[in-house]
Design a protein around this nucleic acid. Structure first.
Length: 887
RNA sequence: GCGCGGGUAGCCAAGCCAGGAAACGGCGCAGCGCUUAGGACGCUGUCCCGUAGGGGUCCGCCGGUUCAAAUCCGGUCCCGCGCACCA
C-alpha cells in the first residue's frame, strides 16, 4: 500500500470492535461527578447528515480529551423519536411510525458507530418507548398537582397541513409559517393543555445573566423571547354617549410620563367592549369584520361614540377600535400618545386626532425646556415634561414614578411577551396526555398506577388516529367509574427533550424519572453542543423543566447546561447543505472513501466549532494524505537506529514537542480544535523534517510520535489507536494519559518568537546588504548585564531609570554601553516586558541554529557576548541577538 | 424600529474581554529547492521605501482617553442574526 492512502476500513472496524469488547466508553453508575458532555439528540430521520457528524464529532472529541485528562466522562446518546415525520413516512410507506422510527434508529446508530463516536450505549434512550414517555405523563400529572398545568380554551396556531396546533415558538416569521412544513398557519379556537412556564418568567430572564458559558446570541434571543417590560397599568373609565358605563379599562404603558399627551384611547378588534359595540354600531361592525387588517403595515381604526377618562388629567378622550391593538399584548387596550410614539402619530395623523407634545428634549440648561415640534413626527426619547401640570419640569424617569404613585388605581406592572406553553398536539406519534374526560367529573388525571397510557396501534387515517382508536379511547372515569373517554391529544415533542438529559443518568430506573442522588451529583451538563435553531424553544423549555423539577422533585440544580456551544453549519460553496437544494455530501460515502478519521479531522481543523465552513473534497483529500503520511512516519520508525541525541537539532525537536503539548492542551480546553490540531499537524511536520535532515535520536523521536498520536487521538481515534499500538502503548490510547509539557505556553511562544525573529533578521540583512553567498553567520547572545538592566527597568517605577541602573556596580562598570542602553530603556520603558532568561535564550538559539544553516547554506554559530567582538556584541539586546554575517 | 454580533492586508480569518512589535494561521499569487510524498512536499516572499536587522503608512469612518489604541470610551456608516403595528 502506498503512503498516499491506508486501509482505513480495516483499521476503523478493528478498533470499533476492540472498544466495544472492552466497554471503553461505559460510564459506571458509581463514578462521582463525571464530566457530562452532551450533543443534542437527533430526530431519527433515517440518515446521519453532515450537521450531525459535526455536532457529534465536537462532543466526541471533547469527551475523549476529558477522558485522557483523567476525568470520568458521561457521553450518552439517544433519540428524539416522537414526531410528525414518522407519521407521514408511515403513511407513505404503508407501515407504522414505530417500525419506521426503529428502522431509522438502527441505521443511524450503525452510522454513529462507524464514525467512531464513543457513547455509552447502555444509557441509550428513545423517547417513543413507554418506559420513557411514561415519565412525560408522570411529570404532567405532578405539574398538574402543583398548579403548573392548565386547560383552557385558546386561540391557537393551527397548521392545516400538519393538522395540529403549534406553539408560538413553532410559528416562524412575519408570514407565520409552520416551522416544519413552511405552510401558513391559521388560528383556531381549541381546548388546550398548557404548562405554565410564565410562572418562571422572571427567573428565566434574570438567570440568563449568570449563563456565562452560553453564547451572547442565544442569551439575547431568550431575553427577547421572554420580553419583560416594566411599566404602569393605568385605569381609564369608558363611557357611552348616553352615559352608559362600560367600566374601567386598564391600559399598560411603559411611558406613563406621556399621559398628558394621551389624545385618544384604542381597543383591540376582539376586545370585549368592541364585541359589545359590534352588535350596536354599524361602523364598528364594518371595521371589525371587513376593514381591520392586523397583519398590514397601516394602522387602521374606527372612531366609536365612547369616551375614556384620562385618570391623571380627568380629560375625556375619544375611543377608537384599532387593528394595531393586539388583544394578547398588554391588556388589549392602550392610550394613544401621538406626540411621543411613532405608530400613534401615524394613526392620529390619519384619523385627525390631536397631537400634543408633553416631553421636551433635555438640553441640560436651566432656561426651561421647549416643547418639540411633533406635527411631522413623534419625539420618542425620554426628556423633561412640559404641559403636564404639576409634573412639568420632571425628567421622564421621575415622572413615571410620580404619576404611577399619585394616580388612583394606577400601579406598576410588568409585562412579558412569553406565553404559557401549549403542549396539546392533535397527532398520533407522541406522548398521550394522561387525562380522561368524564361527563360528570370533567377532565381527570390518569392515576399514577395506570401510567403509562400507551399508544394504541397506528391507524392510517386523515385526522388524528387516536380519535379513531375507539377501543382505546373508551374507558371509565378514575373518579366516579362512569363511562368516559381518553384525551386524544398528545404532547409536543419538546416535552420529551426538556428532561432527556436527566434520564441518561439512570436510564432504566423503573420507579422514578431520575435517580435524585446520582442526578444531583452528575448534573448539570458541563458541555452541551447543538444547533442554533434550538436557541429559544428547546433550551428555554429545558430550563423551565429544570426549575420546576428543582421546586417539586428535589433536583438540586436550577439550570441544566453550564456551557453551551452552538455549532456552525457545514456548507457547500457558501450555502447550507439541504436535500431540496440537492447539495448534500453523504457522510457514509466519505467514510467509505476516506474513513471516519479523515472526515472528523477535516471538519475539526477546518474552522472553530461555532463558525460556518465550506466542505471541500480537496480539503478532505489533503487531510487523508496527512493521515497517510503520519502512519508512514510511525511505521518507518526504528527504535534501534539513530543518533545519540547529543545534538542541537534533537534539543530543538524536544522543545517543539513540549510547545505543541502546551498549546494544544489549552486549545482543547477551549474547544478550539482547529488550533489544537494545527499544532499537532505541525509537530508531525517537524518530526518528518527531523527524520529527513538529521539522524534522529530514537527516544526523542518516539516521544514526538507518541505525543502527536495523543494530540490527535480525540479527533482521529481509530488511526491513533493503531499507531499507539504500533508504538507499543499499553491498553487503548482512548484511555491513555494526556501528554504533559515541560514548558508553559508563554515560554514556548517566546522561544518560537525569538527564533522566528532572529531568522527574519538574518533574512533581512542578507537581502538588504545584498549578500550573495554567506559563509558564516554568527548569532551573538546579549551580555547578562543587559538582561539585568532590562529586569530592573521593567520592575522600576523610579523617575530616573538611568541613575537606578547606575546604582548597580556591574552595570555601571559597562561605562558608555550601560549609559546608552539605559537611555534606550528609558525611552521605551512603558512598553518593556521580560524576555526569556539569558541561558534559555542562548539554548533556544543553539537549538535553532540548524534552521539558519539549512536555510542559508552557511555555517551558523551561536556565541556568548564575551566570545564576540565588542562592536558586534554591543548591538545585541535581550530577545534580540546581534548578528554578524561573513561572506 | 428595538436588541445582539460583526466590519482587520487580494480573499478567508486570529488578536479585542485583561492597551505595549506591520498584526497568528490558511487560500491565492511569485521565487527557490526536491536521485522525490510528484496535479504533491519543503523553504522563502507577498502595504511602501531602504546595499546590516532601518524608516514610513496601516485594523470601516470621525473624534476622545493614554507615554502608548486593532484593542478602552463616544459618535457615525455599512453587513449579518433575532424580535417586532409589543403599547
Amino acid at each position: 500500500m502506498s503512503d498516499e492512502s491506508y486501509d482505513h476500513a480495516a483499521i476503523e472496524t478493528r478498533w470499533q470492535e476492540a472498544w466495544d469488547d472492552a466497554a471503553v466508553y461505559r460510564t459506571p453508575d458509581d463514578v462521582e461527578d463525571p464530566t457530562y458532555v452532551l450533543g443534542m439528540y437527533p430526530y431519527p430521520s433515517g440518515k446521519l447528515h453532515m450537521g450531525h457528524v459535526r455536532n457529534y464529532t465536537i462532543t466526541d472529541a471533547y469527551a475523549r480529551y476529558r477522558r485522557m485528562q483523567g476525568d470520568d466522562v458521561l457521553h450518552p446518546m439517544g433519540w428524539d423519536a416522537f414526531g410528525l415525520p414518522a407519521e407521514n413516512a408511515a403513511k407513505e410507506r404503508d407501515t407504522n411510525p414505530r417500525d419506521w422510527t426503529f428502522d431509522c434508529i438502527d441505521t443511524m446508530k450503525g452510522q454513529m458507530k462507524s464514525m467512531g463516536f464513543g457513547y455509552d450505549w447502555e444509557r441509550e434512550i428513545a423517547t417513543c418507548t413507554p418506559d420513557y414517555y411514561k415519565w412525560n405523563q408522570w411529570f404532567f400529572t405532578r405539574f398538574y398537582e402543583e398548579g403548573l398545568v392548565e386547560r383552557r380554551d385558546a386561540d391557537v396556531n393551527w397548521c392545516p397541513s400538519c393538522e395540529t396546533v403549534l406553539a408560538d415558538e413553532q410559528v416562524e416569521g412575519e408570514e407565520e409559517l409552520c416551522w416544519r412544513c413552511d405552510n401558513p398557519v391559521e388560528q383556531r379556537e381549541l381546548d388546550q393543555w398548557f404548562l405554565q412556564i410564565t410562572d418562571y418568567s422572571d427567573e428565566l430572564v434574570d438567570y440568563i445573566d449568570e449563563l456565562e458559558g452560553w453564547p451572547d446570541s442565544v442569551r439575547q434571543m431568550q431575553r427577547n423571547w421572554i420580553g419583560r417590560q416594566y411599566g404602569t397599568r393605568l385605569p381609564f373609565d369608558v363611557t357611552g354617549p348616553d352615559g352608559h358605563d362600560h367600566g374601567t379599562v386598564e391600559a399598560f404603558t411603559t411611558r406613563a410620563d406621556t399621559v398628558y399627551g394621551a389624545t385618544f384611547f384604542a381597543l383591540a378588534p376582539d376586545h370585549p367592549i368592541t364585541e359589545e359595540l359590534v352588535a350596536e354600531d354599524d361602523d364598528v361592525h364594518e371595521f371589525v369584520h371587513h376593514e381591520a387588517d392586523p397583519d398590514g403595515d397601516e394602522p387602521n381604526g374606527v372612531e366609536t361614540d365612547l369616551t375614556a377618562t384620562n385618570p391623571v388629567t380627568g380629560e375625556e378622550i375619544p375611543v377608537y377600535v384599532a387593528d394595531f391593538v393586539l388583544s394578547d399584548v398588554g391588556t388589549g387596550a392602550l392610550m394613544g400618545v401621538p406626540g411621543h410614539d411613532d405608530r400613534d402619530h401615524e394613526f392620529a395623523s390619519k384619523m385627525g386626532v390631536d397631537i400634543a407634545p408633553v416631553v421636551a428634549p433635555d438640553t441640560g440648561e436651566d432656561d426651561g425646556p421647549e416643547a418639540p415640534d411633533v406635527s411631522e413626527s413623534a419625539f420618542t426619547d425620554d426628556g423633561v415634561l412640559v404641559n403636564s401640570g404639576e409634573y412639568s419640569g420632571l425628567d421622564s424617569e421621575s415622572a413615571r414614578e410620580a404619576i404611577t404613585a399619585d394616580t388612583a388605581g394606577a400601579e406598576e406592572a410588568t409585562q412579558y411577551r412569553l406565553r404559557d406553553w401549549g403542549i396539546s398536539r392533535q397527532r398520533y406519534w407522541g406522548t398521550p396526555i394522561p387525562v380522561i374526560h368524564c361527563d360528570d367529573c370533567g377532565p381527570v388525571m390518569v392515576p399514577e398506577e395506570d401510567l403509562p397510557v400507551e399508544l394504541p396501534e397506528f391507524i392510517n387515517t386523515t385526522g388524528n388516529p387516536l380519535d379513531e382508536a375507539e377501543e382505546w379511547k373508551q374507558t371509565t372515569c378514575p373518579d366516579c367509574g362512569a363511562d368516559a373517554v381518553r384525551e386524544t391529544d398528545t404532547m409536543d415533542t419538546f416535552v420529551d427533550s426538556s428532561w432527556y438529559f436527566l434520564r441518561y443518568v439512570s436510564p432504566d430506573l423503573p420507579d422514578a424519572p431520575f435517580d435524585p442522588a446520582r442526578t444531583n451529583d452528575w448534573m448539570p451538563v458541563d458541555q452541551y453542543v447543538g444547533g442554533i435553531e434550538h436557541a429559544v424553544m428547546h433550551l428555554l423549555y429545558s430550563r423551565f423543566f429544570t426549575k420546576a423539577l428543582a421546586d417539586y422533585e428535589g433536583l438540586e440544580h436550577r439550570e441544566p447546561f453550564t456551557n453551551l456551544l452552538a455549532q456552525g453549519m457545514v456548507q457547500l460553496e457558501g450555502e447550507a447543505m439541504s436535500k431540496s437544494k440537492g447539495n448534500t455530501v453523504s457522510p457514509q460515502r466519505i467514510v467509505e472513501e476516506y474513513g471516519a478519521d479523515t472526515a472528523r479531522l477535516f471538519m475539526m481543523q477546518a474552522a472553530q466549532p461555532e463558525r460556518d465552513f465550506d466542505w471541500t473534497e480537496e480539503g478532505v483529500r489533503s487531510t487523508y494524505r496527512f493521515l497517510g503520511r503520519l502512519k508512514d512516519l510511525v511505521q518507518s520508525f526504528d527504535p534501534d537506529a539513530g543518533g545519540s541525541g547529543d545534538d542541537p537539532i534533537t534539543d530543538y525537536v524536544a522543545d517543539e514537542i513540549d510547545a505543541s503539548v502546551a498549546v494544544a492542551t489549552e486549545e482543547y480546553d477551549d474547544l478550539t480544535f482547529n488550533v489544537a490540531l494545527r499544532e499537532a499537524q505541525e509537530l508531525v511536520g517537524t518530526l518528518r523534517q527531523y527524520r529527513d535532515y538529521a539522524d534522529p535520536h530514537p527516544e526523542t523521536f518516539e516521544r514526538g510520535l507518541a505525543v502527536a498520536v495523543r494530540l490527535l487521538a480525540p479527533v482521529t481515534p481509530h488511526l491513533a489507536e493503531e499507531l499507539y499500538d504500533e508504538l507499543g502503548g499499553d491498553g487503548f490510547v482512548a484511555e491513555a494519559e494526556w501528554p504533559s509539557a515541560d514548558v508553559d505556553r508563554e515560554t514556548a511562544e517566546k522561544r518560537r518568537q525569538l527564533v522566528e525573529n532572529t531568522r527574519e533578521d538574518v533574512r533581512q540583512i542578507v537581502e538588504v546588504a545584498g549578500i550573495e553567498n554567506p559563509e558564516r553567520i554568527d548569532i551573538v547572545v546579549t551580555p547578562e548585564w543587559k538582561f539585568d538592566a532590562l529586569g530592573i527597568a521593567v520592575e522600576s517605577d523610579a523617575d530616573n531609570l538611568i541613575s537606578e541602573l547606575m546604582g548597580e556596580s556591574h552595570i555601571r562598570e559597562q561605562g558608555d554601553a550601560a549609559a546608552s542602553y539605559g537611555q534606550d530603556l528609558q525611552a521605551e520603558r512603558e512598553a518593556l516586558s521580560m524576555t526569556l532568561a539569558p541561558e534559555d535564550e542562548y539554548e533556544s538559539l543553539v537549538a535553532a541554529a540548524w534552521l539558519v544553516e539549512r536555510e542559508f547554506d552557511a555555517s551558523a554559530r551561536v556565541v556568548r557576548a564575551d566570545e564576540a567582538d565588542d562592536d558586534v556584541a554591543n548591538t545585541a539586546e535581550p530577545g534580540r541577538p546581534a548578528i554578524d554575517i561573513v561572506e
